[in-house]
């Protein structure tokens, strides 16, 4: 099911949504939440730090070869939260987190993120091998170097998982992610090399992706964990391209000048169906620390336009305090 969250056509109209003040309030709320965690109950809570470094093959999700750009990146993230067990087989996790993503070859894509989440898990019985249902809700604010890419991101995931043995665990689920741009830029369509008078919506960061996913992980005797996952995503992709790309312009759902390229490129919102594959090896360094080596591959199919892909290789150090 394709769902476009908003369809407002504006021509030459400048509409600025105020994004900075709500962002400040969200930051304050997050920080207050983190610092209000009582230290006396620290063991009842968790804190996790991860640092990842890697390579992304098609950072702007470029459609044509000339639009494809790769970059090495570093991302750091920290999350903390509190675990509640209100009933024997039901637990609730509240978490808050922050992350920063740095792309060495294209700093226009750098962004920081603050997030809040709640996850409710119910086990359909007792023990490690009983099926469990997990419902998680999340909200994040992403602040990038250009206001047009700033957005709020809301997610809901429903996961059914079951451990079949001490080594083998699998999960399936549904998820939906809604992106809301914080800034709707003005676009002078007449200045673009397309037919005069033809316009498009100017809110490419407003969209929703729905997906089905499945994953499996297997732990070897050595403690190394192999994992693989697949996600089928029905929704949208934001693709950045040097104009003119007539195919993209004709079929785009929304378009704006891309701040990641100092407005020298356009970013297009395209309806797409995507296959997202992930594989990883996780090597435990201690019982609280692990190094993960992962490879992700994404293929986007855009109707009338074609398909393009992106791949990512990354090494992540995860430590839980």
């Amino acid at each position: 099911m394709l769902t476009k969250t908003r369809h407002i056509y504006k021509t030459g109209e400048t509409v600025r949504r105020t994004g900075s003040k709500p962002a400040s309030r969200l930051c304050q709320t997050l920080l207050l939440s983190l610092f209000s965690i009582p230290l006396s109950a620290w063991c009842n809570e968790f804190m996790e730090l991860s640092v990842a470094s890697g390579y992304e093959q098609n950072l702007p999700r470029g459609y044509l070869d000339k639009d494809v750009q790769s970059s090495e990146f570093v991302q750091t993230s920290v999350s903390a939260g509190k675990f509640f067990q209100p009933r024997v087989n039901t637990s609730v996790v509240l978490s808050a987190g922050g992350s920063h993503h740095l792309y060495f070859n294209q700093h226009g894509f750098d962004y920081s993120s603050l997030s809040l989440g709640v996850a409710i898990q119910h086990k359909l019985g007792m023990g490690a091998y009983t099926p469990r249902i997990n419902l998680s809700l999340s909200a994040a604010r992403e602040d990038s170097r250009g206001a047009q890419r700033d957005r709020d991101l809301y997610g809901i995931d429903l996961t059914l998982s079951r451990r079949l043995s001490a080594g083998l665990n699998f999960s399936v689920g549904l998820s939906s992610a809604t992106s809301r741009g914080l800034d709707e830029p003005a676009v002078d369509f007449d200045a673009l090399p397309y037919r005069q008078g033809v316009t498009r919506p100017t809110d490419p960061m407003d969209y929703r992706n729905n997906s089905l996913f499945a994953g499996v992980d297997y732990t070897l005797n050595s403690g190394w964990q192999l994992s693989a996952g697949y996600r089928y995503q029905d929704g949208y992709v934001v693709s950045s391209a040097v104009p003119p790309v007539v195919d993209l312009f004709i079929y785009t759902e929304a378009v704006a000048l891309d701040p990641a390229y100092d407005h020298q490129r356009l970013m297009y919102l395209m309806e797409s169906r995507a296959d997202l594959w992930t594989t990883a090896i996780s090597i435990p360094l201690s019982r609280d620390t692990a190094v993960d080596i992962g490879y992700n591959w994404q293929n986007f199919a855009v109707e009338y336009v074609g398909g393009y892909d992106n791949s990512q290789f990354l090494v992540t150090l995860v430590h839980q305090f």
């Binding site: 675990f83 451990r163 080594g167 403690g223 964990q225 692990a290 992540t316």
Partner: peptide
Amino acid sequence: APERRIRRAPSSTSGRYR
């Protein structure tokens, strides 16, 4: 046979509370 236990160490794909 080697001992098989559920892994405790975190991973980037596992849940956050452990």
